[in-house]
């Protein structure tokens, strides 16, 4: 029912939503400028943050909007990263935009594959399938070491200057600007996707797949399509990571990265693109600060944080704050 009401509200409030899109874009760009000014020596971290933000956005598409529980989403990200890295190292495609296209293509293919397998089951078996898939991808990349570099990682990626004008410098300024623009463009496109009839259909499937089938739509085909879109986004993130760090490691195809991206998403709030971004930023800043001090305390803290979020803020940081703001506005009315 909530979906129907959302649809009605959408028809009324399209202009307001457009305003929020613009506001969202300005917030991203504003934060990017602030980050640049505050941490000019740590742009690598900020660039990684934008790449991971793309992964978390992509996870939000399938988990938040379609209700698919997955602990293997890094498969899409890592495939994108390896696709663009392999294109650069083995095929000499070193133009960053073409590498990005390769990454997106790799992500889409991985998304199709994962989607078809994961959507075969529900509940616990679905979760297990996703875990098995990420391990399978990991072992495969490890084994195919002549292509991927195995556990040493794929090194020697040397991207050309962006558009032939901006070389990727030692301080990572070009990579950072490239990443922020990529994130902003993807964010704007995703706002369109999740609000389109297709996006509404996905939300409907999350709430009641049987009803959607009765209405004549195929839940599975729709979800596989969403998985491919999600793969494109995650692949773009992977490509960005490959271009900016110039290496691709096996950790980009790891269970840990998958679990962490889920933690970030839930911390920020599922089912909202703003939530995905909030979670990524908060989580990665804390990780940077705490894990520098002691990696094991970091794990204890993440655990505690997860338990606290589940108990006290099940809608995530963004969801809780947005809910509080809405209530406050209604109280004032």
């Amino acid at each position: 029912m909530a979906t129907m009401n959302d649809a009605l509200a959408n028809a009324h409030g399209n202009r307001r939503k457009f305003g929020r899109d613009l506001a969202g874009l300005f917030v991203i760009l504003g934060l990017a400028v602030v980050g640049y000014l505050l941490f000019p020596n740590n742009l690598a971290l900020l660039t990684r943050m934008t790449a991971i933000a793309l992964l978390v956005l992509s996870l939000d598409l399938v988990t938040g909007y379609c209700g698919v529980a997955t602990l293997g989403h890094a498969a899409l990200f890592g495939t994108g990263a390896y696709a663009s890295g392999i294109a650069a190292v083995h095929f000499g495609i070193t133009d960053p935009l073409l590498m990005l296209v390769c990454g997106i293509f790799g992500g889409v293919v991985a998304g199709l594959l994962c989607g078809v397998v994961i959507l075969r089951a529900h509940g616990l078996p679905q979760l297990v399938l996703s875990i098995a898939l990420i391990h399978l991808f990991h072992e495969f990349a490890n084994k195919a070491s002549s292509w991927t570099g195995g556990s040493d990682g794929l090194a020697g990626i040397a991207p050309d200057p962006l558009l032939g004008l901006f070389a990727f410098d030692l301080w990572g300024r070009t990579a950072y600007v490239f990443g922020v623009i990529l994130l902003a463009v993807v964010f704007a496109l995703l706002r369109l996707v999740v609000r389109s009839p297709f996006g509404m259909l996905c939300r409907g499937i999350k709430e009641d797949p049987i009803r959607i089938r009765a209405m004549g739509a195929s839940p599975k085909a729709t979800l596989v399509k969403m998985y491919m879109i999600s793969g494109a986004v995650a692949g773009a993130g992977g490509a960005l990571n490959a271009i900016s760090t110039q290496v691709v490691g096996l950790d980009s195809l790891s269970f840990t990265l998958s679990a962490e991206s889920l933690v970030m998403l839930v911390l920020g709030g599922t089912g909202s693109l703003f939530g995905a971004l909030t979670g990524t930023i908060v989580f990665m800043f804390f990780e940077d600060i705490v894990s520098a001090a002691n990696p094991f305390h970091w794990l204890t803290m993440v655990g505690g944080l997860l338990i606290a979020v589940v108990l006290f803020a099940p809608k995530g940081l963004y969801g809780t704050i947005a809910g509080a703001v809405t209530r406050w506005r209604e109280a004032r009315r």
């Binding site: 988990t63 529980a69 094991f296 305390h297 794990l299 993440v302 505690g304 944080l305 338990i307």
Partner: peptide, 26 residues
């Protein structure tokens, strides 16, 4: 978390796992 959605259960129990690992290591 009895009867909660799977995602909630996964998060809570992963959280417990992380805490136990951290404490065991400490």
């Amino acid at each position: 978390i009895y009867g909660a959605p799977e995602l909630t259960q996964v998060l809570m129990t992963i959280g417990i796992t992380f805490c136990v690992i951290g404490i065991a290591n400490y």
